[in-house]
């Protein structure tokens, strides 16, 4: 099945799915509170594998909270309460037996601002392998190179791989952070406004990268940039005030939205 999908990538605006895709994330009646603030309200979403799902909406709509809930990074905020179910490949991520460490190994995350570690480029990529107890030098070397190639940054850094990652430009740092996730060969990549801190050229490079990556990975991306969502995503969810207003094929959302609020947002009447 993987091979079929690999060869027959559907065009981003294609409306007919070429193969039946399994769900990676199924969210059922998910609510989230920061203290008394009800940040996510009855979210129901079903996200498929090897697709790019974009989450759009005005700031404060809960899109960032939602993506951080998907790998439970939201747990780090004090006084967070959740209810409902989010299933990752059929397993409830809120289940106590499902360690967050396992979830985060299978699901990588790229943050708004590039956050490389204050280490060399090489050690940044090797970090994930090292913490997971992989000591074999050959495997580490191969994986570092492979990940950097996949993130389309190998050619730029191959001669200075042992130099500090802070020496890279913002755009390169962000692709390094993507490579850092890829080293663990995750199933899903969560991207929280990955290009909001980048210049247009770097943004374009990251977008190209995302398009390449979706052949192997399921990608969920939060973006405030609607053109970006329409350019790179297959499905789009529109969040407003902590609720999902509309979730459909990106083409439909941008050309024929069912809800007036979606249309107002898409056409720039607010947000």
């Amino acid at each position: 099945m993987a091979l079929v999908a690999f060869k027959k990538q559907p065009d981003k605006t294609s409306k007919q799915p070429s193969v039946e895709r399994r769900s990676v994330y199924t969210t059922k009646d998910c609510n989230l509170w920061y203290g008394n603030h009800h940040a996510l309200k009855n979210i129901n979403l079903d996200m498929k594998e090897r697709e790019v799902t974009a989450i759009i909406g005005p700031s404060g709509c809960g899109k960032s909270t939602y993506i951080k809930t998907l790998n439970r990074m939201v747990d780090l905020v004090p006084n967070v309460k959740t209810s409902g179910v989010i299933e990752y490949r059929g397993r409830n991520i809120f289940n106590k037996e499902f360690h967050v460490e396992e979830l985060r190994t299978r699901v990588g995350m790229v943050f708004q601002k590039p956050n490389p570690f204050p280490k060399s480029i090489f050690e940044n990529i090797a970090f994930g392998l090292r913490i997971h107890g992989i000591k074999n030098k050959k495997i580490i070397h191969e994986t570092v190179e492979k990940s950097l190639r996949q993130a389309a940054i190998w050619d730029e850094v191959k001669d200075r791989i042992h130099e500090p990652a802070y020496g890279l430009s913002g755009g390169q740092q962000q692709r390094l952070c993507i490579a850092r996730c890829l080293a663990l060969e995750p199933d899903v990549l969560l991207m929280d406004e990955p290009t909001s801190a980048l210049d247009p050229v770097s943004t374009l490079k990251v977008e190209e990268l995302i398009r390449d990556l979706k052949e192997k990975y399921s990608i969920i991306i939060v973006t405030h940039n609607m053109q970006q969502a329409s350019r790179i995503s297959d499905k789009t969810a529109f969040f407003l005030n902590g609720e999902v207003v509309e979730y459909d094929d990106t083409y439909t959302i941008f050309n024929n939205p069912a809800d007036n609020r979606t249309e107002d947002y898409i056409t720039g009447r607010f947000g």
């Binding site: 360690h99 460490e101 190994t105 299978r106 913490i131 997971h132 107890g133 663990l184 199933d187």
Partner: peptide
């Protein structure tokens, strides 16, 4: 590729309880 990959991920997952 998928087969190769899943073996490694599973190995990593197995080590989590010890790390915890």
């Amino acid at each position: 590729e998928n087969a190769q990959k899943s073996i490694r991920t599973d190995e990593m997952i197995k080590k989590i309880p010890v790390r915890l």
